[in-house]
Every structure is written in structure tokens, then in C-alpha cells.
Design a protein around this nucleic acid. Sequence first.
DNA 1: TCTGGGGTCCTAGGACCC
DNA 2: TCTGGGGTCCTAGGACCC
Length: 416
Amino acid sequence: MKWYGLIDCDNFYVSCERVFDPSLENVPVVVFSNNDGCIIARSNEVKALGIPMGAPLFKYKDIIDRKGIKLFSANFSLYGDMSKRVMETISMFVKDMEVYSIDEAFVNFREMSTEMYNMALKIRVALKKWLGIPVSIGIGRSKTLAKIATHIAKTRTGSHVFLLLEDNEPLVLKDYPVGEVWGVGKQTKKLLSRFGIRNTLDLREANIRFIRSLLGINGVKLVREVNGEAVIGFEHRKFPKSITRSRSFKQPIEDINLLEAAIKRYVEMATEELRRYNLCAGRLAVYISTGEYAERKYSRSAERKFEVANAYTEEFMKISSLLLKRIFKGGYRYKKAGIILSDLSPCTNKVFSDLYENRINRILTEAVDKINSKWGKGTVSSVFSSIYKGRIEDEERRRASFHYTTSWKELVVVKA
DNA sequence: TCTGGGGTCCTAGGACCC
DNA sequence: TCTGGGGTCCTAGGACCC
């Protein structure tokens, strides 16, 4: 019998901050997104105050001040590096794992239940001791059941490990709202509740043909998963299927030239990432939006397929302007813009055709990459990058912690 | 006044083809 | 007067996830 385990870091971003500043232990801490935007991680103390995930900061300013909540700007290079260490540590204990997100990994267990439980405890202790990161671990007959088990594990303040055995499933699922199930969002929850399906046991016992007609093929998978049938397997992707770069602007933008600079800046960032993977992209999409809360809403996207996939910044910049001109409408206050590279594939020699233009692009791109890898990120960048930094990006990141693990300058120093 | 960023998968309608 | 059916590709957008 194969079991699915999910190892989920507790309040991951907050935990990362706490590793390097122990004074944050047992005090309320939040990590927030760009532009003092919204809360993307909360410590247990903050959760207990009833501040929800994704809450805009301005709405909770009062309580944050009153309770002395510690604020941090997101420090993704730190979190990414800590994540890598967590995943490496887990892989020392298990043969088969899937890195599911920055703070979660699925693992397979084949042992008997008591052995599994002990193994989970061992992993948990190792992560806490070696890295200082607390985790919760849930185990069940499918990925979806493991997700539910993990959710329950978080509330088990003692062990933080929960084994969802077949005998216990009916009891547990009856108390588990269907809206909390992995893959059931707002819309699906609303739809299901209209037909009296409110808890996960209801879902499990629903007529499969009815579900098929209501939710499509994914609904069928969902029901089978909560029935303990493992239909969602492990994925081991070597590279992403798309690369996005986008930002919300603090000040809305009305000027197409400024939007163009932003778009080209994102193209520059995304193509850098593309080349890091040695990938070429066959498709570029550009989108702009006034944001959901605007009085006059407008949002459009446009895309272009390339005859030959490539990885040249210049090439994508050129097309991005054309696409932007196609979707831009004057008189709107744009709050967000972004680009997406897709149809990604490993670069082949075909790309480096002898077209004059491509040869120039290639030489330029390679030179830029070489300089930046030797002298540091951003040593040379496009003119749009400086326009962007000067006129659009005004983020100070005052509250960001140091790059403790990824910058020599910001290493922790231990004084004797 | 002020609401993130990066992903995956699915669907629906139109164009086009045989 | 009567005007098919099915497949594929493209584009745009929606739902969901962390």
C-alpha cells in the first residue's frame, strides 16, 4: 500500500525571518507584499487576532499598531534559499518526493502506519533542529487526503503529524467543509452547496455522473481522490511551462510610454530567467489592467506566437511594444501590467540561425549575461530598466530583512 | 487615498480545413 | 427553397493554487 505524505512548513516566510532573528519568536509577525500591499504570511499570534490571509495592510493598520505586530517586506531570495535547504533535507529521508511549492513537498511512504508516523516525526525534528523551520506533516491514501491530514496536523499542537487512516476518514471528512478541499475554490463551493454538498463526506458520496456534468473531468478526479483513490500522481518537471513578470504600480499609469517601459523591463527580467534555464520561448503575451477596484475597469491581453522559439531580450521587447499598442486604450488609470513567456522548450541550434539580426542579438545577449554573472545582477541593463526604477518603482523595502544566506555582504556575523 | 506575484489547467468561441 | 459535421488551432479569459 502506497501512502501520500505532505510536508508543509508552518507560516513559512515568518519562520524564515525567525531563524535569523530569534527575538521574533512568540511575538506577532507578518510579511507583506510589494507597495505595502497585502499580507502574505502571518504568524500564529497574528492568525489568532483574526487578520486574514491576503488582507490589505491599510485595513488593518490600527490593530497592527495597537498590538505591536512586527512587519517585514517579503525577502524572496532568503525564502527561496531556505526552501532549497528544506527540500534537500527531506530528500535525505525519502526516496520519492515532489516539490510542490516553495514551502510544501509531497512524499511517498510504503511502510506500515506506525513506521510511517515515526518517519514523519524524524523528518520534522531534523528540519527544526538543522534549519530551524517548523513543519506539519499529514498522511493519507491520496494527495488530496494528505492535504486534509496536514490541515488537521497544524492544529495538533503536540506532534504536528496526523495520519488519516481509512477507518477514520468518514468521521474526519464529515467535519471538513468542502470549500477547504484542495481544488475547491469559491465558485465550486457555491455550486456544490446549491446541491446540498457541504462537507467532504457529502462530496465523497455524491453521484459521480452528476459531478461529472457539474464540474467536468476535474470534479471526477476530486471525488475519487477523497475516496482514497490516488489519481493525482507525482510530477517531476525539470523546467516551468511559463515565466511571468508583472507588478502592480503604486501610482496608476496613464501614459503609454511609461507602460511600455514597464513592459520592456518585465521582458528583460523574464528573458534573463528564461536563459538561466537554457530555454527558448515560442510565445509572448502582454497584459495591462486597471485593477479590480478601479472605478472604470479595463483589462486586456494579447499574444504572439514566434516562428522560431528564441531567448533574445531584444526580439521579445520589439514584439511586446506591438502587442501593447494593440491593447492600450487611452483614458484609463492602469494599476498593473505584465508579460508571460510560454511554449517553453530547451534551446536548439536552430535558433542560432545565421540571420544577421539574430547574430547581433545573440552576441549582445551573451555579453550582457556574461557581465552580469561576473559583476552581479543588474550591472548592465536596458534603458527601460532605469526608466522603470526612476519613474515607476518607488518601493523602498525599508522593512526587508537581510539576504542572510545569499549575499556575502549580509552574512550573519558571530562575535566571539 | 491605499488590495501581491507566479504558476497550472480548462473552456469557449471563432477561423479554418476537409 | 433547401445550406453538414468534425477536427484543430488560436485567442481570451476564468478558476484555482501557494
